[in-house]
Design a protein around this nucleic acid. Structure first.
Length: 279
DNA sequence: CACGACACCTGCCGGC
DNA sequence: TGCCGGCAGGTGTCGT
């Protein structure tokens, strides 16, 4: 699914169209997509609400919502799971299968959440309160923000024997990195994905910490990776998958040393790396 | 506590 | 052609 660059692209696409819009109607699809509150309360809370600021936190999207009966700081919180999309559509456009939420925004516009695999999640409420209730996970620092410091990162690495790739995927350590950009960052840093985190040299750990924002920013510039389901806020594909170095390229030659890239499993996830460059 | 295994879903692709 | 296994960008839970 969408990782940080894909979610960031959608947020930037939707922001100018959603802020200030009023929700004239709500249509729910599969109720399992809605994690909080129960579906009737979720729909009732959104109906008539005014949409405010939209932002990203890790792989979550948060759309501010104001309305009668909604607590201060309420947001519509969307996680896209593996196959979710959040797109602005013309109201007349036929709804795709697996459309689980439609917000009628008037002026012939609809915001649609489509998610075939239903790993995505929708919540409505103040994020801090949902975190306290255990409905939202506590996320680590943003990798593109000032809190992703060398001190924090190396303290996290020193504390665990897990593979470095598992640490990159742990949203409590750093939020927003997924399987594609973990592999890409480790390739750029020349670090083997299986290396136990506590056995990395300081320099190697630093190389990973520095590679991650570079990889993520590049992917944002390319509007995200559309390998299968991902689409931007208007339903179009991104281009970041066209310039990946390792992800999905097992058997092809390393762009640096021409060694065939190898595929393995790390932390239960398919992992591609260069056995020559990454140590 | 830390970690790995597994579950949760649908769709698509390749092999037989 | 059709069936079946394997695989997919994520994460919550459970058992060791």
């Amino acid at each position: 699914m969408p990782e940080l660059p894909e979610v960031e692209t959608i947020v930037r696409d939707l922001r100018p169209h959603l802020v200030g819009a009023r929700v004239a109607g709500v249509h729910l699809g599969h109720p399992a997509a809605i994690r909080h509150p129960d579906p009737p309360a979720f729909a009732a809370g959104l109906a008539g609400a005014r949409l405010g600021p939209i932002r990203r936190r890790g792989k979550f999207m948060l759309l501010g919502c104001r309305g009668p009966g909604l607590p201060r700081g309420t947001a519509l919180i969307v996680h896209l799971g593996m196959s979710g999309t959040l797109c602005l559509s013309a109201a007349g456009e036929p709804r795709r299968p697996h459309t689980h939420l439609v917000l009628d925004l008037g002026a012939d516009r609809e915001l649609r959440f489509v998610d075939p695999r239903r790993f995505g999640r929708l919540l409505l409420g103040p994020p801090a309160a949902l975190e306290r209730l255990g409905r939202l996970p506590r996320l680590g620092p943003e990798p593109l923000g000032p809190a992703f410091t060398a001190d924090w990162w190396h303290a996290c690495l020193r504390r665990t024997r897990r593979a470095i790739k598992a640490v990159l995927l742990d949203q409590r350590v750093v939020s927003g990195c997924g399987n594609i950009y973990a592999d890409e960052s480790l390739f750029l840093a020349r670090v083997h994905p299986q290396r136990p985190a506590d056995r990395l040299t300081r320099a190697a750990g630093e190389a990973v910490r520095r590679a991650l924002p570079i990889v993520l920013r590049q992917a944002i510039r390319s509007r995200g990776s559309s390998i299968a389901d991902y689409r931007d806020g208007f339903g179009a594909r991104g281009a970041a998958h066209e310039s990946l170095f390792v992800y999905g390229r097992q058997g092809l030659l390393c762009v640096r040393c021409r060694t065939p890239l190898r595929r393995t499993q790390v932390a239960g996830r398919t992992t591609v790396f260069c056995p020559c460059c990454q140590r």
